[in-house]
Design a protein around this nucleic acid. Sequence first.
DNA 1: TGCATAGCTTGTTTTTTGCAAGTAACAAAT
DNA 2: ATTTGTTACTTGCAAAAAACAAGCTATGCA
Lengths: 149, 149
Amino acid sequence: MKKNVKRSECPISRALDILGDKWTLLIVRDIVFRGFRFYNEFLEGGEGIATNILSDRLKILESNGFLVSKKYELQKTRKVYTLTENGIGLIPILLEMLIWGFNFDDSLIIPNQKAEMMNEIIKRVKTDKDEFLREIVASVKSFDAKNYC
Amino acid sequence: MKKNVKRSECPISRALDILGDKWTLLIVRDIVFRGFRFYNEFLEGGEGIATNILSDRLKILESNGFLVSKKYELQKTRKVYTLTENGIGLIPILLEMLIWGFNFDDSLIIPNQKAEMMNEIIKRVKTDKDEFLREIVASVKSFDAKNYC
DNA sequence: TGCATAGCTTGTTTTTTGCAAGTAACAAAT
DNA sequence: ATTTGTTACTTGCAAAAAACAAGCTATGCA
């Protein structure tokens, strides 16, 4: 079980207390940019998270108010995980990481189509970030993700 | 020594492969928002990093091309750590974390003066982010940090 | 009963942490 | 000139925490 100690009052340090590991933001990415909502979707998300780590991070995200889980009425053995308003507040950080990952990791092999999508994202962030964020938030809320990554 | 395995081609996953821990971005914060340049400054940065972790993270940041270290000519036992252009590319992520930490962590006790500074930062990011980033970069390069956090 | 989903348990490996000791450059004292 | 001391890292080691992998359990269906 990952601990969550407050190391200092610095806002960046506080962000890293909660988000500073290899998995937490990846779950948020799956929800925001891939439209995932279920445990097994996160599990099969591509990076190979272990079941206990996934369970731990979902709990931490929920206990910190970034997401909520509730029974999926169409199939009662499953739970639906959705972002709260606080969870939605993480999208700008994800967006900057997306841009950073695209700009600075030369070893990333991004197919042409994806590169075009990225240029589009970068352009939109520069010209009308607030409107762009609103669109992403709307897509998350309507379970119709943008699939940007 | 922290590993750095490429888990997938996703830019966010790649960013988290390198940056996804509690210390790496804190060192970059110290350089960008506090004007730190020396090992002992990072060591005394407030969050209590261990000497071997600091040494490890500085090496990782250097080997990934985010910072360079060179002998400090005024005092040859010391090394000066400075950001590369790639390291400067991390500032937008830090800036979003700063804003996030300010907006969403209710337990953060931020004195009035700091709150005003934060509102100013948020306003500037919204109105002319590129110009604001240029100012921060200039302040980092001239060793005259903004002390935003 | 049999299957799927969610997630818990256990054992092992990896990483972090705290602390102690080591090295290198320089300066002041002997 | 040599010793001693100081600063600035750097390395090594043992204990603790976290991650990982695999198997197991509880619940709700069909």
